[in-house]
Design a binder for these strands. Structure first.
Length: 425
DNA sequence: TCTGGGGTCCTAGGACCC
DNA sequence: TCTGGGGTCCTAGGACCC
Protein backbone atom coordinates (compact mmCIF):
# COMPACT_ATOMS: atom_id res chain seq x y z
CA UNK A 1 0.00 0.00 0.00
CA UNK A 2 1.45 3.31 -1.11
CA UNK A 3 0.64 6.93 -0.44
CA UNK A 4 1.99 9.59 -2.78
CA UNK A 5 2.22 13.00 -1.11
CA UNK A 6 2.46 15.64 -3.83
CA UNK A 7 2.82 19.34 -2.99
CA UNK A 8 0.46 21.63 -4.88
CA UNK A 9 2.22 24.26 -7.06
CA UNK A 10 5.17 23.73 -4.75
CA UNK A 11 7.46 26.67 -5.57
CA UNK A 12 4.55 29.12 -5.64
CA UNK A 13 3.27 27.71 -2.34
CA UNK A 14 6.73 28.29 -0.79
CA UNK A 15 6.73 31.94 -1.91
CA UNK A 16 3.21 32.41 -0.54
CA UNK A 17 4.27 31.10 2.87
CA UNK A 18 6.07 34.41 3.42
CA UNK A 19 3.76 36.50 1.26
CA UNK A 20 0.22 35.58 2.37
CA UNK A 21 -0.99 38.68 0.51
CA UNK A 22 -0.45 36.67 -2.70
CA UNK A 23 -3.17 34.17 -1.82
CA UNK A 24 -5.79 34.20 -4.59
CA UNK A 25 -3.56 36.16 -7.00
CA UNK A 26 -1.83 34.79 -10.12
CA UNK A 27 1.80 33.93 -9.28
CA UNK A 28 4.57 32.30 -11.32
CA UNK A 29 8.07 31.12 -10.41
CA UNK A 30 10.71 31.30 -13.14
CA UNK A 31 13.72 29.07 -13.80
CA UNK A 32 17.34 30.21 -13.82
CA UNK A 33 17.93 33.28 -15.99
CA UNK A 34 14.22 34.03 -15.54
CA UNK A 35 13.76 31.78 -18.57
CA UNK A 36 10.75 29.49 -18.17
CA UNK A 37 7.70 29.18 -15.94
CA UNK A 38 8.48 26.25 -13.62
CA UNK A 39 5.62 26.67 -11.14
CA UNK A 40 2.32 28.50 -11.39
CA UNK A 41 -0.61 29.14 -9.13
CA UNK A 42 -4.08 27.93 -10.09
CA UNK A 43 -4.97 31.53 -10.98
CA UNK A 44 -1.98 31.70 -13.38
CA UNK A 45 -2.99 28.36 -14.89
CA UNK A 46 -6.51 29.68 -15.47
CA UNK A 47 -4.99 32.58 -17.42
CA UNK A 48 -3.62 30.01 -19.88
CA UNK A 49 0.05 30.18 -18.88
CA UNK A 50 1.43 26.70 -19.60
CA UNK A 51 4.01 24.86 -17.52
CA UNK A 52 7.46 25.39 -19.05
CA UNK A 53 6.35 28.45 -21.00
CA UNK A 54 9.21 30.80 -22.02
CA UNK A 55 8.67 33.87 -19.88
CA UNK A 56 9.48 36.34 -22.68
CA UNK A 57 6.46 35.14 -24.66
CA UNK A 58 4.13 35.93 -21.77
CA UNK A 59 5.45 39.30 -20.56
CA UNK A 60 2.36 41.01 -21.96
CA UNK A 61 0.03 38.61 -20.16
CA UNK A 62 2.01 39.04 -16.93
CA UNK A 63 1.68 42.79 -17.18
CA UNK A 64 -1.93 42.96 -18.27
CA UNK A 65 -3.17 40.46 -15.68
CA UNK A 66 -0.98 41.55 -12.77
CA UNK A 67 0.85 38.21 -12.56
CA UNK A 68 3.42 38.28 -9.74
CA UNK A 69 6.78 36.85 -10.90
CA UNK A 70 9.52 35.28 -8.82
CA UNK A 71 12.99 34.16 -9.88
CA UNK A 72 13.50 30.64 -8.57
CA UNK A 73 14.74 30.71 -4.96
CA UNK A 74 15.81 27.09 -4.81
CA UNK A 75 17.53 27.32 -1.43
CA UNK A 76 14.21 28.29 0.09
CA UNK A 77 12.32 25.48 -1.65
CA UNK A 78 14.94 22.93 -0.58
CA UNK A 79 14.61 24.01 3.04
CA UNK A 80 10.80 23.80 3.02
CA UNK A 81 11.07 20.41 1.32
CA UNK A 82 13.24 19.15 4.20
CA UNK A 83 10.65 20.25 6.76
CA UNK A 84 8.03 18.20 4.93
CA UNK A 85 10.36 15.20 4.80
CA UNK A 86 10.95 15.43 8.57
CA UNK A 87 7.24 15.45 9.25
CA UNK A 88 6.54 12.51 6.91
CA UNK A 89 9.42 10.49 8.34
CA UNK A 90 7.88 10.95 11.78
CA UNK A 91 4.67 9.39 10.46
CA UNK A 92 6.58 6.41 9.05
CA UNK A 93 10.28 5.81 8.42
CA UNK A 94 9.22 3.88 5.31
CA UNK A 95 9.40 7.09 3.30
CA UNK A 96 10.98 7.66 -0.11
CA UNK A 97 11.75 11.24 -1.10
CA UNK A 98 11.05 10.99 -4.81
CA UNK A 99 11.64 14.64 -5.73
CA UNK A 100 11.73 18.06 -4.11
CA UNK A 101 7.91 18.09 -3.96
CA UNK A 102 6.87 14.42 -3.87
CA UNK A 103 7.31 11.54 -1.43
CA UNK A 104 6.09 7.95 -1.43
CA UNK A 105 5.09 6.35 1.87
CA UNK A 106 4.78 2.60 2.36
CA UNK A 107 1.66 2.12 4.48
CA UNK A 108 1.76 -1.67 4.81
CA UNK A 109 3.23 -1.56 8.34
CA UNK A 110 0.74 1.02 9.65
CA UNK A 111 -2.57 0.24 11.28
CA UNK A 112 -4.93 2.43 9.30
CA UNK A 113 -8.64 1.96 9.77
CA UNK A 114 -9.79 4.28 7.02
CA UNK A 115 -7.37 5.48 4.35
CA UNK A 116 -9.47 8.47 3.32
CA UNK A 117 -9.57 9.77 6.90
CA UNK A 118 -5.88 9.06 7.42
CA UNK A 119 -5.00 11.00 4.24
CA UNK A 120 -7.13 13.93 5.30
CA UNK A 121 -5.36 14.08 8.68
CA UNK A 122 -1.88 14.02 7.08
CA UNK A 123 -2.96 16.76 4.70
CA UNK A 124 -4.22 18.95 7.57
CA UNK A 125 -1.07 18.38 9.58
CA UNK A 126 1.20 19.48 6.69
CA UNK A 127 -0.96 22.52 6.16
CA UNK A 128 -0.86 23.48 9.83
CA UNK A 129 2.77 22.66 10.68
CA UNK A 130 4.54 23.56 7.42
CA UNK A 131 1.92 25.60 5.60
CA UNK A 132 2.08 23.75 2.28
CA UNK A 133 -1.08 22.30 0.64
CA UNK A 134 -0.66 18.79 -0.75
CA UNK A 135 -2.60 16.21 -2.76
CA UNK A 136 -2.55 12.60 -1.63
CA UNK A 137 -3.09 9.47 -3.71
CA UNK A 138 -3.52 6.08 -2.02
CA UNK A 139 -3.21 2.81 -3.97
CA UNK A 140 -1.59 -0.59 -4.20
CA UNK A 141 1.13 0.46 -6.67
CA UNK A 142 3.23 3.56 -7.19
CA UNK A 143 1.77 4.15 -10.65
CA UNK A 144 -1.79 4.04 -9.32
CA UNK A 145 -0.97 6.29 -6.36
CA UNK A 146 0.50 8.86 -8.77
CA UNK A 147 -2.66 8.65 -10.84
CA UNK A 148 -4.85 9.04 -7.76
CA UNK A 149 -2.91 12.09 -6.54
CA UNK A 150 -3.31 13.77 -9.94
CA UNK A 151 -7.09 13.41 -9.60
CA UNK A 152 -6.93 14.57 -5.99
CA UNK A 153 -5.23 17.75 -7.24
CA UNK A 154 -7.68 18.36 -10.09
CA UNK A 155 -11.06 17.31 -8.66
CA UNK A 156 -12.23 20.09 -6.38
CA UNK A 157 -14.72 17.69 -4.73
CA UNK A 158 -12.00 15.26 -3.62
CA UNK A 159 -10.80 17.37 -0.65
CA UNK A 160 -7.22 16.62 -1.72
CA UNK A 161 -7.22 12.89 -1.00
CA UNK A 162 -8.21 10.00 -3.29
CA UNK A 163 -8.18 6.43 -2.03
CA UNK A 164 -8.06 3.65 -4.64
CA UNK A 165 -7.46 0.95 -2.00
CA UNK A 166 -10.89 0.72 -0.39
CA UNK A 167 -12.96 1.18 -3.48
CA UNK A 168 -14.99 -0.83 -5.95
CA UNK A 169 -13.50 -2.09 -9.23
CA UNK A 170 -16.04 0.09 -11.05
CA UNK A 171 -14.85 3.26 -9.31
CA UNK A 172 -11.23 2.39 -10.00
CA UNK A 173 -12.03 1.77 -13.67
CA UNK A 174 -13.76 5.16 -13.85
CA UNK A 175 -10.61 6.92 -12.62
CA UNK A 176 -8.50 5.04 -15.17
CA UNK A 177 -10.96 5.93 -17.93
CA UNK A 178 -10.69 9.60 -16.98
CA UNK A 179 -6.88 9.62 -17.18
CA UNK A 180 -5.48 10.44 -20.64
CA UNK A 181 -2.43 8.34 -21.57
CA UNK A 182 -0.15 11.38 -21.52
CA UNK A 183 -0.84 11.81 -17.78
CA UNK A 184 0.34 8.31 -16.86
CA UNK A 185 3.65 8.08 -14.98
CA UNK A 186 6.20 6.94 -17.57
CA UNK A 187 4.41 8.21 -20.68
CA UNK A 188 6.11 11.22 -22.19
CA UNK A 189 5.86 13.19 -25.38
CA UNK A 190 6.90 10.30 -27.58
CA UNK A 191 5.03 7.34 -26.08
CA UNK A 192 1.78 9.33 -25.85
CA UNK A 193 1.26 9.69 -29.62
CA UNK A 194 2.49 6.13 -30.19
CA UNK A 195 -0.15 4.76 -27.83
CA UNK A 196 -2.91 6.89 -29.36
CA UNK A 197 -1.93 5.55 -32.79
CA UNK A 198 -2.69 2.09 -31.35
CA UNK A 199 -6.15 3.28 -30.31
CA UNK A 200 -5.16 3.56 -26.63
CA UNK A 201 -6.39 6.89 -25.30
CA UNK A 202 -6.65 6.44 -21.53
CA UNK A 203 -5.21 4.50 -18.60
CA UNK A 204 -8.06 1.97 -18.72
CA UNK A 205 -7.17 1.16 -22.33
CA UNK A 206 -3.49 0.81 -21.43
CA UNK A 207 -4.31 -1.46 -18.48
CA UNK A 208 -6.04 -3.83 -20.92
CA UNK A 209 -3.16 -3.97 -23.38
CA UNK A 210 -1.65 -7.46 -23.69
CA UNK A 211 1.73 -7.47 -21.91
CA UNK A 212 3.47 -8.81 -25.03
CA UNK A 213 2.26 -5.89 -27.11
CA UNK A 214 3.19 -3.43 -24.35
CA UNK A 215 6.68 -4.92 -24.36
CA UNK A 216 7.00 -4.60 -28.14
CA UNK A 217 5.78 -1.00 -28.15
CA UNK A 218 7.51 0.36 -25.08
CA UNK A 219 10.06 -2.13 -23.83
CA UNK A 220 10.20 -3.45 -20.29
CA UNK A 221 8.97 -0.16 -18.84
CA UNK A 222 5.74 -0.55 -20.79
CA UNK A 223 5.08 -4.03 -19.43
CA UNK A 224 5.66 -2.72 -15.92
CA UNK A 225 3.30 0.19 -16.50
CA UNK A 226 0.50 -2.18 -17.58
CA UNK A 227 1.10 -4.44 -14.58
CA UNK A 228 1.12 -1.53 -12.14
CA UNK A 229 -2.12 -0.13 -13.57
CA UNK A 230 -3.65 -3.55 -12.85
CA UNK A 231 -2.49 -3.47 -9.24
CA UNK A 232 0.63 -5.63 -9.52
CA UNK A 233 3.56 -3.69 -8.01
CA UNK A 234 6.78 -3.58 -10.05
CA UNK A 235 8.39 -0.65 -8.26
CA UNK A 236 9.30 -0.99 -4.60
CA UNK A 237 9.72 1.76 -2.07
CA UNK A 238 13.37 2.92 -2.15
CA UNK A 239 13.79 4.46 1.30
CA UNK A 240 17.49 5.26 0.85
CA UNK A 241 17.23 6.48 -2.70
CA UNK A 242 19.39 5.12 -5.47
CA UNK A 243 23.17 5.30 -5.29
CA UNK A 244 24.21 8.40 -7.15
CA UNK A 245 26.16 7.70 -10.32
CA UNK A 246 26.90 11.22 -11.53
CA UNK A 247 27.08 14.76 -10.24
CA UNK A 248 26.20 17.37 -12.80
CA UNK A 249 26.25 21.15 -12.68
CA UNK A 250 25.37 23.40 -15.56
CA UNK A 251 24.20 26.90 -16.29
CA UNK A 252 22.92 28.86 -19.21
CA UNK A 253 24.91 32.07 -19.35
CA UNK A 254 23.40 35.46 -18.56
CA UNK A 255 24.55 36.41 -22.07
CA UNK A 256 26.19 34.44 -24.90
CA UNK A 257 29.96 34.75 -25.08
CA UNK A 258 32.93 34.39 -27.48
CA UNK A 259 35.50 35.10 -24.76
CA UNK A 260 37.48 32.18 -23.39
CA UNK A 261 38.06 33.81 -19.96
CA UNK A 262 34.28 33.88 -19.49
CA UNK A 263 34.08 30.16 -20.32
CA UNK A 264 37.01 29.53 -17.97
CA UNK A 265 35.27 31.38 -15.13
CA UNK A 266 32.07 29.40 -15.76
CA UNK A 267 33.90 26.05 -15.81
CA UNK A 268 35.84 26.97 -12.65
CA UNK A 269 32.68 28.02 -10.78
CA UNK A 270 30.61 25.01 -11.87
CA UNK A 271 33.47 22.65 -11.08
CA UNK A 272 33.91 24.23 -7.64
CA UNK A 273 30.25 23.55 -6.82
CA UNK A 274 30.29 20.03 -8.24
CA UNK A 275 33.50 19.15 -6.37
CA UNK A 276 32.11 20.57 -3.10
CA UNK A 277 29.06 18.36 -3.62
CA UNK A 278 31.37 15.39 -4.21
CA UNK A 279 33.28 16.05 -0.96
CA UNK A 280 30.08 16.56 1.02
CA UNK A 281 29.05 13.04 -0.07
CA UNK A 282 32.54 11.65 0.75
CA UNK A 283 33.09 10.64 -2.86
CA UNK A 284 35.90 10.89 -5.38
CA UNK A 285 35.51 10.99 -9.17
CA UNK A 286 37.46 8.81 -11.55
CA UNK A 287 36.26 10.78 -14.57
CA UNK A 288 34.96 14.19 -15.51
CA UNK A 289 33.51 15.81 -18.60
CA UNK A 290 32.49 19.21 -19.82
CA UNK A 291 29.84 20.19 -22.37
CA UNK A 292 29.91 23.55 -24.13
CA UNK A 293 27.03 24.48 -26.40
CA UNK A 294 25.55 27.27 -28.43
CA UNK A 295 21.88 28.23 -28.23
CA UNK A 296 19.87 25.25 -29.42
CA UNK A 297 17.03 27.55 -30.49
CA UNK A 298 19.28 29.31 -33.01
CA UNK A 299 20.52 27.97 -36.36
CA UNK A 300 23.95 26.33 -36.39
CA UNK A 301 23.52 24.73 -32.95
CA UNK A 302 26.80 23.16 -31.83
CA UNK A 303 27.70 20.98 -28.89
CA UNK A 304 31.20 19.89 -27.99
CA UNK A 305 32.16 17.67 -25.07
CA UNK A 306 35.30 15.97 -23.80
CA UNK A 307 35.69 13.24 -21.22
CA UNK A 308 38.77 12.98 -19.00
CA UNK A 309 39.98 10.15 -16.79
CA UNK A 310 42.09 10.52 -13.66
CA UNK A 311 44.63 7.89 -12.69
CA UNK A 312 44.05 8.85 -9.06
CA UNK A 313 40.33 9.48 -8.30
CA UNK A 314 39.94 13.01 -6.99
CA UNK A 315 37.60 15.56 -5.43
CA UNK A 316 40.20 18.31 -5.69
CA UNK A 317 38.68 21.48 -7.12
CA UNK A 318 42.08 22.69 -8.32
CA UNK A 319 43.12 19.62 -10.28
CA UNK A 320 39.61 19.06 -11.70
CA UNK A 321 39.38 22.68 -12.84
CA UNK A 322 42.88 22.64 -14.29
CA UNK A 323 42.26 19.58 -16.44
CA UNK A 324 38.79 20.67 -17.56
CA UNK A 325 39.86 24.22 -18.48
CA UNK A 326 42.84 22.89 -20.41
CA UNK A 327 40.67 20.47 -22.38
CA UNK A 328 38.06 23.17 -23.04
CA UNK A 329 40.78 25.51 -24.30
CA UNK A 330 41.82 22.89 -26.86
CA UNK A 331 38.35 22.80 -28.46
CA UNK A 332 37.33 26.42 -27.92
CA UNK A 333 36.26 28.11 -31.16
CA UNK A 334 36.24 31.94 -30.95
CA UNK A 335 33.70 32.26 -33.77
CA UNK A 336 30.92 30.53 -31.80
CA UNK A 337 28.47 32.21 -29.44
CA UNK A 338 28.60 29.97 -26.38
CA UNK A 339 25.35 29.75 -24.45
CA UNK A 340 25.73 27.06 -21.82
CA UNK A 341 28.35 25.06 -19.94
CA UNK A 342 27.88 21.80 -18.02
CA UNK A 343 30.28 19.87 -15.82
CA UNK A 344 29.78 16.16 -15.21
CA UNK A 345 31.60 14.12 -12.58
CA UNK A 346 31.24 10.34 -12.83
CA UNK A 347 32.92 7.08 -11.99
CA UNK A 348 32.26 7.94 -8.35
CA UNK A 349 33.98 5.96 -5.60
CA UNK A 350 33.86 6.35 -1.84
CA UNK A 351 36.89 8.19 -0.48
CA UNK A 352 37.01 5.50 2.19
CA UNK A 353 37.10 2.51 -0.16
CA UNK A 354 39.84 4.23 -2.12
CA UNK A 355 42.20 4.24 0.82
CA UNK A 356 41.68 0.61 1.73
CA UNK A 357 41.29 -1.19 -1.61
CA UNK A 358 42.80 -0.24 -4.83
CA UNK A 359 45.73 1.84 -4.14
CA UNK A 360 49.14 0.34 -4.68
CA UNK A 361 49.86 1.96 -8.01
CA UNK A 362 48.15 5.29 -7.31
CA UNK A 363 49.58 8.38 -5.74
CA UNK A 364 48.25 7.89 -2.24
CA UNK A 365 50.43 10.56 -0.66
CA UNK A 366 49.26 13.26 -3.04
CA UNK A 367 45.66 12.07 -2.68
CA UNK A 368 45.83 12.37 1.10
CA UNK A 369 47.49 15.78 0.92
CA UNK A 370 44.73 16.93 -1.43
CA UNK A 371 41.99 15.64 0.87
CA UNK A 372 43.51 17.37 3.89
CA UNK A 373 43.84 20.62 1.96
CA UNK A 374 40.25 20.49 0.76
CA UNK A 375 38.92 19.66 4.22
CA UNK A 376 40.46 22.90 5.46
CA UNK A 377 39.03 24.72 2.45
CA UNK A 378 35.52 23.37 3.15
CA UNK A 379 35.80 24.09 6.88
CA UNK A 380 36.51 27.76 6.16
CA UNK A 381 33.56 28.04 3.81
CA UNK A 382 31.25 26.17 6.20
CA UNK A 383 32.13 28.57 8.98
CA UNK A 384 32.31 31.90 7.15
CA UNK A 385 29.99 31.33 4.20
CA UNK A 386 30.11 29.84 0.75
CA UNK A 387 32.89 31.22 -1.50
CA UNK A 388 34.72 32.92 1.38
CA UNK A 389 37.78 31.13 0.01
CA UNK A 390 37.75 30.20 -3.66
CA UNK A 391 39.88 29.69 -6.75
CA UNK A 392 40.90 32.85 -8.63
CA UNK A 393 39.71 31.43 -11.96
CA UNK A 394 36.12 31.70 -10.71
CA UNK A 395 36.48 35.48 -10.66
CA UNK A 396 37.93 35.92 -14.17
CA UNK A 397 34.51 37.10 -15.27
CA UNK A 398 30.97 37.39 -13.98
CA UNK A 399 29.49 37.73 -17.47
CA UNK A 400 28.34 34.11 -17.58
CA UNK A 401 26.28 34.32 -14.39
CA UNK A 402 22.54 33.93 -14.85
CA UNK A 403 20.21 36.84 -14.30
CA UNK A 404 17.49 36.80 -11.66
CA UNK A 405 15.53 39.99 -11.47
CA UNK A 406 12.73 38.79 -9.19
CA UNK A 407 14.55 36.87 -6.47
CA UNK A 408 12.72 36.65 -3.14
CA UNK A 409 14.65 36.87 0.17
CA UNK A 410 16.33 33.76 1.61
CA UNK A 411 13.76 33.74 4.38
CA UNK A 412 14.95 30.55 6.06
CA UNK A 413 18.64 30.23 5.11
CA UNK A 414 20.23 33.70 5.56
CA UNK A 415 20.33 35.58 8.87
CA UNK A 416 19.78 38.94 7.20
CA UNK A 417 16.66 37.73 5.39
CA UNK A 418 14.77 36.14 8.28
CA UNK A 419 11.38 37.83 8.50
CA UNK A 420 10.34 39.81 11.55
CA UNK A 421 7.02 39.00 13.18
CA UNK A 422 5.09 41.70 14.99
CA UNK A 423 2.28 41.07 17.41
CA UNK A 424 -0.64 43.35 16.66
CA UNK A 425 -2.77 43.93 19.72
C1' DT B 1 16.53 40.66 -27.34
C1' DC B 2 14.51 36.86 -24.23
C1' DT B 3 13.46 29.25 -24.06
C1' DG B 4 16.05 25.77 -16.66
C1' DG B 5 18.59 22.36 -13.90
C1' DG B 6 19.53 17.73 -12.29
C1' DG B 7 19.05 13.10 -12.90
C1' DT B 8 18.82 7.80 -15.32
C1' DC B 9 18.93 4.84 -19.15
C1' DC B 10 19.39 3.60 -23.99
C1' DT B 11 20.96 3.81 -28.92
C1' DA B 12 23.89 4.46 -32.81
C1' DG B 13 27.84 5.47 -35.71
C1' DG B 14 32.77 5.68 -36.20
C1' DA B 15 37.45 4.48 -34.75
C1' DC B 16 40.01 1.03 -33.22
C1' DC B 17 41.27 -3.74 -31.57
C1' DC B 18 41.69 -8.95 -32.39
C1' DT C 1 35.22 -7.27 -58.58
C1' DC C 2 34.88 -9.66 -54.13
C1' DT C 3 35.08 -7.83 -47.92
C1' DG C 4 33.19 -11.51 -41.03
C1' DG C 5 32.28 -11.47 -36.32
C1' DG C 6 32.84 -9.70 -31.90
C1' DG C 7 34.31 -6.44 -28.83
C1' DT C 8 35.46 -1.57 -26.52
C1' DC C 9 35.60 3.34 -26.29
C1' DC C 10 34.19 7.89 -27.59
C1' DT C 11 30.86 11.25 -28.95
C1' DA C 12 26.28 12.74 -29.75
C1' DG C 13 21.66 12.55 -29.10
C1' DG C 14 17.16 11.21 -27.38
C1' DA C 15 13.77 9.09 -24.25
C1' DC C 16 11.87 9.42 -19.59
C1' DC C 17 11.30 11.66 -14.66
C1' DC C 18 10.88 15.82 -11.31
Amino acid sequence: MFALIDCNNFFVSCERLFRPDLEGRPVVVLSSNDGCVVSRSNEARTLGIPMGAPAFKYRQVFKAQGVVQFSGNFELYGDISQRITHLLTAITPRTEVYSVDESFLDLSQLAIADYQTWGGAVRQRLLREVGIPVSIGLAGTKTLSKLASEHAKRDSGSSGVIDLINTTPATRAAYLLNTPVKDIWGVGRRLGPRLRAQGVHDALGLSRMPPRLAGQLMGVHGRQMVAELNGTPCHRLEPFGKVRQTIMHGRMFGEDTRQFPVIEAAIASLTARAAAHLRADHLLARSAAFYLRTNRHKPGYRLVSRHLDFTTPTADTGSLTGRLVEAAGAVFNPSLDYHKADILLYGLVSEHSLQTDLFNNLDLAESEASQTRLRAFDAINDRYGRRTIRYAAEDLSAAWQPQHRHRSPHYTTAWDDIPTARIIQ
